[in-house]
Design a protein around this nucleic acid. Sequence first.
RNA 1: GCUCGUGUGGCGGAAUUGGCAGACGCACCGGACUUAAAAUCCGUCGGAUUAAACCCCGUGCCGGUUCGAGUCCGGCCACGAGCACCA
Length: 809
Amino acid sequence: MKKYDFKKIEQKWQQHWDESGVFEADQPADGYVPDKPKYYCLVEFPYPSGQGLHVGHPRSYTALDAIARKKRLEGYNVLYPMGWDAFGLPPENYAFAANIHPAVVTEDNIRSFKKQLKSLGFSFNWAREVNTTDPAYYHWTQWIFLQLYKHGLAYKKEMNVNWCPACKIVLANEEVVDGACERCGALTTHRVKSQWMLRITDYADKLLDGLDRLDFIDRVKLQQRNWIGRSHGMDIKFATTGGDTLIVYTTRPDTLWGATYMVLSPELGLLEEWIGRGLLFNVEEIRVYQAEAARKSEFERSQLSHDKTGVRLEGVKAINPVNQQEIPIFISDYVLASYGTGAIMAVPGHDTRDYEFAKAFDLPIVEVVAGGDISREAYVSIDDGVLVNSGFITGLSVTEGIERVMSWLAEHGLGVPKTNYKLRDWVFSRQRYWGEPIPMVYCEQCGWQPLPESELPLLLPEIRSYELSETGESPLSLLTDWVQTTCPACGGPAVRETDTMPQWAGSSWYFIRFTDPHCTTGIASDEAMRYWLPVDWYNGGMEHTTLHLLYSRFWHQFLYDIGAVPTPEPYLKRTSHGMILGENGEKMSKSRGNVVNPDDIVNEYGADTLRMYELFIGDFEKPAPWSTSSIRGVSRYLERVWALQEKLIPGTAYRPETETLMHQTIRKVTKDTDTLKANTAIAQLMTLVNRFYELESVNHAEYQTLLILLNIFAPHITEELWELQNYGGNITGQKWPVWQEELTIEATVEIAIQVNGRIKARIDLPHDISREDALAAAKSEAPIDSELAGKTLIKEIFVPGSLINFVVK
RNA sequence: GCUCGUGUGGCGGAAUUGGCAGACGCACCGGACUUAAAAUCCGUCGGAUUAAACCCCGUGCCGGUUCGAGUCCGGCCACGAGCACCA
């Protein structure tokens, strides 16, 4: 027997796969549709960082590679592509430091990433590789932006944005974590900038309702639902002594009788009006508070201790529409200007925040829902509790009360039903160089004008200096020649937009491009999209749930609405892998010094061992710590599979002594792989090999099945063994084995016999034995006979194939 | 604070609808092979007790439902993730 030389074998087969093109999916074209059914497997394409791959990356790739390989063996035309999400901050930051063009850095990184991925033997369709920084790619990213603009979903807005003083960049809300920059950790502040925004909020309902029809794991759906945060309530009109009407949004109109004051966001425009009209007496105090609120960072505002502060408006009061009571109005920063109407009715008895505020300002707290103890805390339950002190809804339940008040308010023109969302529009501008230029031009005469589609792609211009302006303008703004242009509408002088798109742009549609990556006439050809979309199975990290996954659904839904893609949703199924932690159980990172490089593992044990270990490490959905010593187990297993060559005996069918286990193994590997439980599938394959060792033999029929099953996890060694045994063709050209259910059942099964729930004996019985026979056999078995002697039998339980329980007294 | 998830040997983790807890692997220990070691093969491997076995205890903690609970219900505790004043 030859030695298992994994280095030679892996290199050989990787080259073979490349040259033979076995993993290139059959592409539909004009007048041609592949006859095999399609299956589109997708993993999140990586950002090619300078650090290269770490052992966390391959977990997702390996899992779906097994799926992709299995689907091919099952007769599907499988698309399993890979590409690069290559725009982004790090190469640009690196460019400042080392004065190397980001494109050069990116290219280098891609080269080393690709080499690493190739060394792991993934069955990626490399001919479809895409790169978001390629003008041929971002041409269409820009095109999609123009469509969004033309359909009123992209707009420019002066707004308070999150500003990172260290990175000198505007951050999206999602990039601010605990008031600090997600990348560098610096505390963020606010700046007012004119930003391109995408109206994702227009798609809030579609994004939410679409989830019902998708096979996404629950935690993903839940997180997207919470993020979108739809709530149903009412906009209610309050008259004021100033003469204006104040509108508040509430989900609890039933508590209107308990509204004892109102609170406005300090940024609310109406305040300026009132001040301007001289209605307020304590303007000084208000100004001080406003300034303070504006100064507060996002971090300070979101501090755990939400100490309530505010100022009472002297001069204007509100009138509660249900009881005509005059109630005071405050301003306080606990009311957000950006949600609802920026004003609330405060019900201290039944809202925790209002309760705290009322306590701080010594305001009356009225109980309108009985069931709690409002002398101690706000009673917020809506499930139980009865309305009290509430006029015509007194005595009703909360839900009934809400309905009654809402119809009453609507009838009297005092309220309008309203749906609100927590989701905010998507800040789409970045003041950076290394991103897609936004194809818009500003003309003094015509305003913002989209570049004609014929002028796309708008190339990212060359730049000599990577200096950032202190003002936070994009480096592109320093390129006067590029900035100065002519207006596409009137031909007069105009300037280009100098902001670029965020990293989320290119990744929002890359799965579409994979269906037809070289298409020059559109995002992809119709026949390619009709054949391949939607993605059948998309796996990726939980950290992308509310950003990338939601953004790409938004873009896709929009593209569907304008007829640019054939399916309403991009992904049918979404799963998520747990993170691979360092050996110490901590997150793997350079600073913690616990990073494991896959190259080292491949060198020492081979790619097949690494792949198998990535899957064997534990529950795919949960985080798992890396263990260098456990890898030995997998490596040893592959050695044992290799060494089985010595134990081969003739045979074209499974032997009686292995038949049951063979069928059980096929079933378990098939089912467990489909449900991402490769860890137990592999355990079963280990059990099978252990059995062959026990028998000290394996026949060719059994070995062939083992190799095909194992191939999806360890593709190189199995190809080699297939060839060494002259089984004919390549293993990639074989059929996935099938099991026969009736052959998975053992002729006899061990039944546990319990007396009062305690196991007293175990006997082997035919698997299909009747209840009567089984009980009789059990009763005559020692020591059950003596256990039952002289006692009263109360109950006999028989679970076929499992156990018998005698309940006695 | 709210929402969701998870707690099983020394370790990673298994366990259909409630039905024999600890599959598979790692580590440890023992045996075979070897002049020896490594590698390999075989075996033991939750705790307590014992000469050995039976019995007993055991899936974060307390209680409940059930013939039977890791699994279901109620109440705690711990860890992790997400949200973070969204009215």
